[in-house]
Structures are given as structure tokens and as C-alpha cells.
Amino acid sequence: MTSGEDFQRDMRYVTTRITRDGADGYPVEAGRYRLIAARACPWANRAIIVRRLLGLEDAISMGLCGPTHDQRSWTFDLDPGGVDPVLGYERLQQAYFARFPDYPRGITVPAIVDVPTGELVTNDFAQMTQDLSTEWTDFHREGAPDLWPDALRDEMETVMKRVFTEVNNGVYRCGFAGSQEAYDAAYDRLWTALDWLEDRLATRRFLMGDSITEADVRLFTTLARFDPVYHGHFKCNRQKLSEMPVLWAYARDLFQTPGFGDTTDFLQIKRHYYVVHSDINPTQIVPKGPDLAGWLTPHHREELGGRPFGDGTPPGPVRPGEVVPVEASAAA
């Protein structure tokens, strides 16, 4: 991530894939890989949600970094002794360097690590979740949803591209603008897209129709962070999410669906942005608000029909050790 007059995200990721045929040297194999994520990060939150929706907990273990990091790396400060219990690492950086000793770019989450070698496989967050849906089907739970339905893929790609460029990345473009002109342009682009989404979701329950797809996962992680962080911290302040009737109801519908709200840690989210971005928030004071109780209020989106999981079923209870603490959730 770079900042300047016009924010530009560094999209050069390690694009190695884990596939059935193992074409890149890493075949799909239960128990071999570890997803390293951070609940604070919207890109990593996507992978956590998809893993849970598909029921891949037994096939791919998960390690969680804390909400803050320094310039070197995300760290395993949530674990006893500050060491990931599977990899034996204190820093995610160690997995990157195990494969690329001179790795020159930022250490990002989510990342998938090959446990036997301790080496990074990929940090390509967009391809990663698509592959979890399409390459790992042998290990999906019974009743797992189809997050990449064949009939919708072309339209999904178009929708997700706009969501990424204008919303997921659009809030960062506002927050890290280096001039008034750049900020004004970014702000206008963001709200044009949010108004488009408000219109699109007025007559359909989910982005692609009657059921949840990857497109909804990608949008949700930005919406969940909007009022706690992006509205104030990133100056995306035309309205709060809670003041946009359709998007707010849509976000609550997803939040109350297993896999979404139960993977969202608001305390870690706020701590990450307000502490790590000291250039924007030099005091590093973390705000106490907003009130999260609204996330659990009725949304009435079921009146639009549809079935969130299509022909599938919701995931079961969150696995022990992966539960978001009550004090960090909307139930607090």
C-alpha cells in the first residue's frame, strides 16, 4: 500500500495456487496448509468467512495474528508466548522469507503457508478464496453453498470488479488521499458506487440474486468496517451505513447469517486502523463507539424472498478456539 496524492494499492502478490492438479507444486491436500489471517483486515476476513461457509476447518487450519503490526510484519501476539503453535513463528514475515529470502514487498494477510516447509504459498487474497470454492470441493462440508455459481460467473466478475475498485479499495483511496483534489475525486467515486449498490439491492436480497455468493462476502467486509472506521477515520462521511436504508438492512441480513457476524471482531477492527495508521491518527486513540446493537435488529430482507444458502445449509457452530469474544461482537 502506498500513499500520495492519489492512493495506489500495490497489487503484486505471490500468485502461486493450490489446485487439484498441483500445477504450481502445491496440490490440494487436507492438513497440509495453514491459513494465516487477522480478524482486523477486511481482505483476510474474506478468507475466514469463506473457510467457515464451506466447512474447511478440518482441511485447512487457521492461525490468527493480532490487530496491530509494525513496519516489518504481522505478529502472532495473540498466541501464548507470541508464537504460532503450528508454524513456530513469531512473525508472518518468517514464512515469506522461508520461501523468498529477499522478499521486497509488504507482509500481508491473508496468507496460506505450507506447514511441512514453513514456506508461504500465496497471499493473493482474491484468487485464494476463489480456489477455496472451486479447487477444494472434495473437502467442503455437506450442504456447503456454491459461492461461484457457473451461470452467474460473468456477471459476478463485473460486479466484483466494481465493488473492489470503487468500494473495497475506494474507502482507502479516500483515507490515504494526499491532496484535497484526490480526496474529493475519491469521495465522489465511492458514493457513486454506494448509491448504485443501494439501488441494486433494493429489489434483490443479495448482490447476485436470491443466494449468497463470493460477491456478498467481498462487499460485507467493507460494510462491517464502515461506521466503526471508514466513516470517520477515512473521511467517508456523507452518510453512515446505518443511514442508508437498503445497504444497512442488507449488511444486517448478512451479519445475522452464520459465517459473517460470528467472524467479525469490532474491537480488533478499530484497534488496527486507529493504532497502525498513525499518520492519519497520530494520537492512536481508539474511539469507543459506535453502538453495535443495531447489527442485531430485524432487517426484513426475507420479504424479498430467496434462500441465503441456496440448496445448501448454514454452517454449524463456530469451532472452539475460533469464537469471537463477546465483548468484541454486537452482542456485547
Rank of each mutant, 00 (worst) to 15 (best):
L147V: 03
A40M: 02
F139M: 04
G321L: 08
A332V: 10
S242V: 03
L120E: 06
M128C: 09
P314Q: 08
R17L: 05
T75A: 14
P258R: 00
E5W: 00
K161C: 12
M11F: 11
H299F: 04
L132A: 06
G232T: 15
L267Q: 10
I212N: 09
P298L: 12
L241M: 07
A193I: 00
L78K: 13
Q180F: 05
L56F: 13
A224I: 10
C65T: 15
D184S: 13
V83A: 10
H233M: 09
Q130T: 14
E157F: 10
L147I: 08
I280E: 01
Y89Q: 13
L120Q: 05
L147G: 13
R319M: 07
A202M: 03
P258A: 06
P80L: 08
P282C: 00
L35Q: 06
A177W: 04
T16A: 08
I212Y: 11
G118P: 15
Y274M: 00
V86F: 08
A95Q: 06
L53K: 12
Q71V: 06
L219S: 12
V323K: 12
Y13N: 05
F176W: 07
N169E: 11
Y26H: 15
V167K: 02
V50K: 03
S242E: 11
H69Q: 13
R319E: 15
T263M: 08
P104V: 05
F76W: 07
L197C: 04
G316P: 09
E166W: 03
K270L: 04
P287H: 00
A332M: 05
D77V: 02
G312L: 04
R307L: 08
F226V: 05
P42C: 07
P42M: 07
E57P: 12
A151E: 15
A38T: 14
F234A: 11
I36M: 08
S278E: 13
R105L: 13
F176N: 03
L241T: 10
R91I: 03
T117P: 07
E166Q: 14
R238G: 05
N237P: 15
I60T: 14
P80A: 15
E198T: 02
R252D: 11
G294H: 02
T122I: 02
T2F: 07
A193L: 02
A59S: 15
G310I: 08
D216H: 13
G175F: 03
D84K: 06
Q94G: 08
V113D: 04
A126N: 12
G106Q: 09
M244Y: 01
G316N: 10
D124I: 04
W295F: 07
A202T: 03
E322V: 05
S133F: 06
D195A: 03
L292E: 07
Y250G: 13
R271N: 13
Q127V: 09
Q71D: 15
I112G: 06
H272K: 02
T68H: 01
W43D: 11
R319Y: 07
R162M: 09
L78C: 14
R39V: 01
Q130E: 14
E243R: 04
T203R: 12
A37I: 04
D24F: 01
F100Y: 15
V115H: 11
R301Q: 10
W248F: 10
V324T: 11
T165M: 07
L194T: 00
